[in-house]
Computed example of a mutant assay.
Amino acid sequence: MPSLKDKVIIITGASRGIGRAMALRFAEEGATIVIAAKSDKPHPKLPGTIHTVAEEVEKAGGKAIAVALDVRKELQIKKLCDQIGEKFGRIDAVVNNAGAISLTTVEDTSPKRYDLMQQVNSRAVYCFGHYALPYLKKSENPHILNLSPPVNLKEEWLKDYSPYTLSKYGMSILSKGMAAEFKQYGVAVNTLWPKTYIATAAIEFAVGNKETLNYARKPEIMADAAKVILTHPSNNYTGLWLIDEEVLKAAKVSDFTQYAYNPDYEGKIKKDLFLD
């Protein structure tokens, strides 16, 4: 089986949730993980910082580099890419996992919140594509993986929270464009989205409440799917809008009960946003 051993992987928003799960999964294979997130200091409500995850990565068998990063600041992204690229001679993968969410209408979304979502979601994908590309070109199997959904223009996904929807679809459209543009360099660009709710702070605080987590799967399903994607040959696996369960089924995974956040709710897990 292809491995991520010694691969240099940048993961944004890696201090908790899906990003943390990916960091630990890749660490099990001996990868070097750049844990890039704003969480330099403990959050009053949410567990995890870049430093606690760095410790977990090392314990799991990987190497960790903790970097305080605000993905809204393009010069911070440039500095990070240059430092990592020059230190290792390459970047093997970038996972754009950091996200901002507000499920609010145009009427109820302030310009400040609108700008935040566009910057953290779609603009960060552009910035990492722009600044990481010179170092991705030097990798044997370079990947960019963006956590965004297939573009679905049904009215139900636009009517109630189009500012957020635009920011996530922007990530997916940029991914398609970069996949075509970067194919000449052998750099794969794909998106990954969960088929179901994933038990994260976003689901608990933005979509529902603590009870909602019972209807979700654990972040580990996204981590396992990402591992499959990042070990595919980059020259022929690009420009895809991927769903976690479909990726794992293609990899011969058949038991999805292991991913249920609450096994008692296994048959009641809810489908995620943007999926019919």
Rank of each mutant, 00 (worst) to 15 (best):
L4Q: 06
L4A: 11
K5V: 09
D6M: 10
D6E: 15
V8C: 06
S15A: 15
A23R: 00
L24F: 10
L24H: 03
L24C: 08
R25F: 06
A27H: 00
E28C: 10
T32M: 08
K38E: 05
P47D: 11
G48L: 05
T49F: 04
T52I: 10
A60K: 08
A68H: 13
V71A: 04
K78S: 14
L80T: 04
C81S: 09
K87G: 05
F88T: 06
F88G: 06
F88H: 14
V94A: 06
V95C: 12
N97Y: 01
A98D: 03
A98G: 07
L103K: 04
T104D: 12
T109N: 10
S110T: 15
P111Q: 08
K112Q: 11
M117G: 01
M117S: 06
V125A: 09
Y126N: 08
F128T: 02
G129C: 10
H130P: 02
Y131K: 03
P134F: 05
E140C: 07
P142A: 11
L145R: 02
N146F: 00
L147D: 01
L147F: 12
N152C: 08
K154S: 15
E155F: 12
E155R: 12
W157D: 00
K159A: 15
S162T: 12
S162K: 05
T165F: 03
M171R: 01
S172T: 13
L174G: 03
L174Q: 08
K176F: 12
G177D: 11
G177C: 10
M178V: 07
K183T: 15
Q184L: 14
Y185F: 15
V187N: 03
V189T: 07
T191C: 14
P194E: 07
T196W: 07
Y197C: 04
I198M: 05
F205S: 13
V207D: 06
G208C: 08
N209P: 03
E211D: 15
T212A: 10
Y215G: 00
V228I: 15
P233D: 15
N235D: 15
Y237M: 10
G239L: 08
G239P: 05
L240R: 08
W241Y: 14
I243P: 02
E246S: 08
A251R: 01
K252E: 15
F256S: 05
T257P: 01
Q258Y: 12
A260G: 06
P263T: 08
I269E: 04
D272E: 13
